[in-house]
Design a protein around this nucleic acid. Structure first.
Lengths: 338, 338
DNA sequence: ATTAGAAAATAAAACGTTTACATTTTGTAT
DNA sequence: ATACAAAATGTAAACGTTTTATTTTCTAAT
């Protein structure tokens, strides 16, 4: 219980060699004779020696730690990204520091000031800041996920938000819908903005003019989905279709539709962006724009580690990886024409 | 981009003082004249100096890092615990390392070997190992959450699984149910075991003998909930009530009931352990044994930090904190008697 | 003006590694 | 046996802090 921590020196002493030799067998760097290697390995095992990574970090400037910064830790989208990242990181021998900023710029600042500044090899960032300046100040290898800020100076892993919304809306149009509503939120980040304009373009291409009364902007929250769906359906001329621009809005919409005693795919057609438990449960299952959440984490982590390992000279051009979305048609859209 | 990292030495040089003095103003430890303090603070700000925590850790043996080890990172129960923990940790100036073991003992071992052994001030552990030995070998301040192993030598934060299951079952009995089934999993850990015996006791107290045919043991998975519910309801003499011993089993049960075209609270009564999205959605809402997930994280983190800060002499007795559960009656249990 | 004592500041050791360079040992060809 | 290259190991500096022991500076009482 009170035995002092065992250091490389203890191992060296027991093995009758210098610390350098011990260090060498641990890192497999230089050559060491087979005999001594075995001897040292045995002693390491006997003494239960585990090297102090921080001491090592001091000299080689690698901490073998990554960090992932997300707005909140309980949203399934973020945990999926984190899950993917942790998996890759572990495989490559990195540990992952998880930081939640609560979507608060000040908290994000604080974090950067206090810790990250120095001790992490790289990070994956789902940022809250909206100014490119903030991101340009980050000197560590960094990958932006989901929310990309132009001129930020970092690589990104994104999905094609525009296309997702476009496909969803086009699906409505093809099925003969004309009164198509969209529930989204502030256009603070490109992702949300793109979704709106994807909707917009598909409307125009279908010969429809987006009606401002059918565009409900909240805060991307479940309660917005609920409230606006109620509002829309109780209006004089309710829409025949609703596009819920993110997962929780969709959840809210489903609940509202239920509480209004309406039938999905019959009284009202619905498409959600991003899958979710409820959309899968109700019948018919809700058609959704599915995005590869876990893959985003995997991809981002791979790019990050690549970057960390790579020569500094390999300063390639900035890279944005756009992962594809897919419209999963499950039958929550009623066919009106033909 | 390529400017060298700024160290405490640079600050000292610019301020014309020794590094010791700079260190002192940073830590507020010793006294420093007001004039020099101001001067140094200004320089720190100007140079944008952020101290290297690892170097500091080397000498004072505190990393200001906590770690939380969970079986998986996508289960809402674990993320809730993590969320609570991260919140407390941040407030106290600690960062949180998240480790997922995938419920695999070998992975858990590997983790302990490689990193945690030394570089974290303490940890919260939702362990996969079943042997007390494993836990006794952990020399760091550690709090076990949810799954407690006797004689492990660490404090724990738990919920009253026995009582939760007992209350649920008693509720069934009071409403006149006699054919009460339970779907659970292996009794590897005390939590699961206790739930079964809580059910068991309530049955006996209600003058009922638990029927082995009504006890379905799977692997605590959603598919088990689905499969066993199907099985039970299609049997010759289906139960009138089912107790789903965890959140995902309950989800599976709800889906099965839906697919069987049965009505919850009418054709079959259901109680789940731990709340979940679906249980909240269906109508009537499913009665659940609710446990304070986030609070578990908060409580555990507080105890942990307390322990870390405390004098080593304060070797108090082991402490198990049992948080209370609550049976939330929402109407998925039909009244059969009276 | 002197000096004791407090206050402020410094010098240097320590933390546990890695690694460039130096030295010793071993092996090989003459 | 000798010379020399290659292999194995050792020595010591470095990483960026904190902290103890020590020195310098200041304050105030004589």
């Amino acid at each position: 219980m009170f035995n002092k921590e065992i250091t490389i020196k203890d191992v060296a002493k027991h093995a009758n060699v210098s610390v350098a030799t011990v260090s060498r067998v641990m890192n497999g760097r230089d050559r060491v004779s087979d005999a001594t290697r075995k001897k040292i390995l045995k002693i390491i095992d006997e003494l239960n020696f585990v090297p102090n990574t921080m001491a090592a970090s001091m000299v080689n400037k690698k901490t073998k730690m990554l960090s992932v910064v997300v707005p909140e830790i309980q949203n399934p989208f973020y945990t999926a990204v984190i899950g993917g990242m942790v998996e890759v990181a572990k495989k490559e021998g990195f540990f992952t520091l998880v930081v939640a900023t609560n979507g608060d710029e000040a908290e994000e600042d604080e974090f950067f000031d206090s810790f990250l500044g120095k001790n992490v090899d790289g990070m994956i960032l789902i940022g809250t800041h909206k100014d490119a300046e903030f991101y340009r100040n980050i000197r560590k290898p960094t990958i932006l996920v989901d929310r990309y800020i132009n001129d930020c100076g970092h690589d990104g892993v994104l999905i094609d938000n525009f296309r997702g919304a476009y496909e969803a809306t086009r699906h409505f149009v093809e099925y003969g819908h004309e009164r198509i509503a969209i529930i989204d939120g502030e256009h603070d980040f490109n992702d949300g903005k793109d979704r709106y304009w994807g909707y917009h373009q598909a409307m125009h291409e279908g010969g429809l003019t987006p009606d401002p009364n059918y565009h409900k902007q909240g805060n991307w929250l479940e309660e917005d989905g609920y409230r606006f769906t109620m509002e829309l359906m109780r209006s004089e001329q309710p829409p025949t279709a609703i596009f819920a621009a993110n997962n929780v809005i969709c959840t809210g919409a489903i609940k509202a539709i239920r509480d209004l005693n309406l039938r999905i795919g019959e009284d009202i057609s619905l498409i959600g962006f991003d899958d979710n438990e409820l959309a899968q449960f109700v019948q018919p299952r809700v058609t959704v724009v599915s995005r590869p959440t876990r893959e985003m984490g995997l991809q981002a982590a791979e790019m990050l580690i690549q970057k960390i390992k790579g020569e500094p000279s390999e300063q390639t051009k900035l890279k944005k990886v756009i992962l594809d979305v897919e419209l999963m048609k499950y039958g929550s859209v009623k066919r009106l024409n033909k």
